[in-house]
């Protein structure tokens, strides 16, 4: 016997509920980043010395580049959703692919930033300065990975022409999550930079 999988009769109501669920989920994830940032702020304020401490490298300059990349990817994501809302399939696929590529590029840049500081001997367990850098970037990168997977699925569905102006829930949810990743990164990066500026 067929099992019911949605209590909604109207697909539009289904989408509205999905958008709301996604929003609540994002707020929940935002609490994770808020707590992490707060933790960093507290240990930074309690530390009397300068960040980076003597003998440790500064924040890798590549992070500025990855910030630009993720900001641009957020913009292309917005163009993606606008294109599918207007049912412009070719444009939609182009922007979606661009966003996908930028997402991968962001991760590559983060890995490059890590190898740069590892080469400069920023040891994870020597100081909280290093600890916060690694933990915060890793935490965010994991969330990006968690977005790349679903995006690959959306890219595949888009290639098969599954999305229409009135039927693109997957794209909508993905876009919401992606903009959140952008915002989360900017907040994290700003906190890391603030940590190096702060003097007690």
């Amino acid at each position: 016997m067929k099992q019911r999988i949605t209590p909604f009769e109207d697909p539009r109501a289904r989408t509205e509920a999905g958008v709301m669920g996604m929003l609540v989920f994002i707020v929940s994830l935002a609490m994770i980043f808020a707590a992490t940032i707060l933790g960093l702020v507290v240990v930074r304020i309690e530390d009397d010395g300068p960040w980076p401490p003597a003998g440790m490298p500064a924040l890798p300059s590549l992070l500025a580049l990855s910030t630009v990349v993720i900001l641009v990817s957020s913009l292309t994501m917005w163009l993606t959703t606008r294109a599918i809302a207007g049912d412009r399939q070719v444009e939609f696929r182009r922007w979606l692919w661009t966003t996908f590529a930028l997402g991968i590029a962001f991760l590559v840049l983060q890995v490059a930033a890590w190898s740069q500081v590892i080469a400069d001997e920023l040891d994870f367990d020597r100081h909280l300065y290093a600890w916060t850098f690694y933990v915060l970037t890793a935490l965010h990168a994991l969330h990006v990975l968690g977005g790349i997977g679903p995006m690959a699925v959306v890219v595949r569905h888009a290639g098969r022409g599954r999305y229409r102006a009135d039927q693109h829930r997957g794209v909508t949810y993905l876009a919401m999550y992606w903009h959140f990743l952008d915002l989360a990164w900017v907040s994290l990066y700003a906190t890391l930079v603030w940590g190096t500026w702060f003097r007690s």
Binding site: V24, V27, S28, L29, M31, I32, A35, T36
Partner: peptide, 9 residues
């Protein structure tokens, strides 16, 4: 939704 993520992290 709002408190549990803090425990998680």
């Amino acid at each position: 939704v709002l408190a549990t993520p803090v425990l998680g992290i």
